[in-house]
Amino acid sequence: MTNLKPLTIAVTGLNAIDSPGPGVAVARGLKEAKSFDANIIGLSYESLEPGIYLHDLFAKSYQIPYPTTGTETLLERIKYIHSVENIDVIIPNFDAELYSFMKLEKELNKLGIKLFLPEINQFEERQKINLPKFGKDYNIKVPHSKALYDAGEIYSLHDEFSYPLLVKGKYYDAYVAHTPQQATTFFHKISSKWGLPIIIQQFVKGNEYNVTGLGDGKGNMIAAVPMRKQYITDKGKAWGGITITDENIIELTRHFLKSTSWRGPFELELMKDPEGDYYLLEINPRMPAWIYLAVGVGQNIPEAIVNLALDQAVEPFESYQTSKMFIRYSWDMVLDIAEFQQISTFGEL
């Protein structure tokens, strides 16, 4: 038994697959929260998202409609789930669904459901397509990039870009192209999956670092944990990493938060060139899949998000354990077909 206040928190991103969503890691952080007792509800898009079947973490899971079906459908579904579960806070974890939740924030607040997300203008200005302007506006170095809507434009890039260059999707996927032919192939590969535009970005040679953190929306840094990926899959995902001590990264993060008054969690993807300068490659407006590393080294960001969403005072984290590693593994669960049938047929388990 615990005397902590019980809270019902709904979490998305239960796809703990080869390119994992953060949901399972977020749930682990919430379970370890010291300021409340989390009853965690999973929100899934597909029946085979592994988190659905992790009953120690997720008390119950519900399927929700894809963002493409519109916010009205999503709101109706959440109203139903809320009528059963009485949700206090929702933590969305997918880039592609964030816009819907941001649009619904006021409606959800009226129902008594709280969120702690970036504002729509913050979300928009950090989009990959807007990154050059973002860098200019906030005095942050970003690699030169350009949005393309037609693969034919690739052959006229030689004045602006040299090879290799990066070909990136609006939300996901990135490939290094060494020739215009390769760039064209990647353009079609990504656009067929994620649509247009395709972003062409200058390739910055160096080492990649990531920092995850949390801004309070008033320019303050609540949390920041920098990490270097040690083991990267062919999809570019970190399956191993180590926390590092780098005051320059923390300062850059502080500058980013102060300049933008960022509200909510984020992940900055940075490249350090051989001269030691940092380039901002991407701003992900959510927690990364490796968020449990931040929890494990002393900054429980999921817990802080819930408290900020509920207007509770949250003191900024002042330190984290450095040189701590995470190593991710996959785990085969054996379960009865009845569970799969339940979530597939009724949309809840």
Binding site: M227, R228, Q230, G241, T243, T245, D246, T322, S323
Partner: peptide, 18 residues
């Protein structure tokens, strides 16, 4: 000054994680 060295010859740069 920040480099950690163990007797076995394992070096760690905590600033870069290398």
């Amino acid at each position: 000054s920040n480099i950690a060295i163990s007797d076995s010859g394992f070096l760690l740069n905590p600033a870069t994680g290398e």
